[in-house]
Design a protein around this nucleic acid. Structure first.
Lengths: 125, 125
DNA sequence: AATTATATTCTACATCCGTAGTCGTATAAT
DNA sequence: ATTATACGACTACGGATGTAGAATATAATT
């Protein structure tokens, strides 16, 4: 048991996305600027960072004067885990049900589906 | 503002699933039996039901002595909304990115992918 | 060094969710 | 009529999360 809650909240996720996009360790200032449009106070962002570090989602390291943050969970790992969780919790773990649903329900637009179809057909498995 | 939190929790979702599976209004007793393996106390289930009604996810109606519950959100609606949310929040809203990721990352097994491929190829869009 | 600007920590609070105890009432059994 | 049951309402509580003020530490500037 990792004992980590491992749950990244919606707001916290926005921070992770900044880090993933950056692709390199960045400092608080960078993050602050990157999420400026969210209208969060500095201390709010700070709280998120602290909690993410506590959760083991980020590591931070002091370089020079400020802290630099690095994701310990990669975007693809996170995507995977969330997608799996969705399929498990809503589709009885059946990928097939999931796929069928992508079609049958209007989850996706016709364009989306054409796109998907193309991708799948191209792919050699 | 809908003022509804609209967020159905993990445990609450289990109740919804029972209702969806039932396909008809069922009473508390039925629900209690259906989720017996969860080991929840009676009052816990009661709380979930109350909250789900408050959230507008269920309606309840007294018939005879007990309440009968009916989902106000269908399983497919819920599946859709969750899937969309996932794609939006993790894949920049791009279905393409999502699909690519289903392949590239090891989200799905080779078998899963073959299955998907088959489904998509069969489908006329 | 003293002052000012800036960053980080600590503390706080409301809400949501999982979980459940208690109480009152309605129903059934004795 | 009394007692045992079953069920729904109300209350509670801890942890997670979103949000941020206050206090403190650190760095920059005069």
């Amino acid at each position: 048991m990792t004992s980590k809650s491992n749950t990244i909240g919606e707001a916290e996720l926005e921070i992770m996305k900044v880090l993933w996009r950056a692709g390199k360790p960045v400092n608080t200032q960078y993050i602050n600027e990157a999420v400026e449009e969210k209208g969060w106070k500095r201390t709010t962002i700070s709280t998120f960072l602290t909690r993410l570090v506590q959760k083991g989602a980020l590591s931070c390291e002091k370089q020079g004067k400020s802290y630099y943050y690095t994701p310990l969970i990669s975007q693809s790992e996170y995507r995977m885990s969330q997608t799996k969780h969705l399929i498990k919790s809503l589709y009885n773990g059946s990928v097939k049900e999931f796929a069928v649903s992508l079609f049958e329900e209007e989850t996706l637009s016709a364009g989306d589906i054409r796109e998907l179809k193309a991708i799948f057909e191209d792919k050699e498995v």
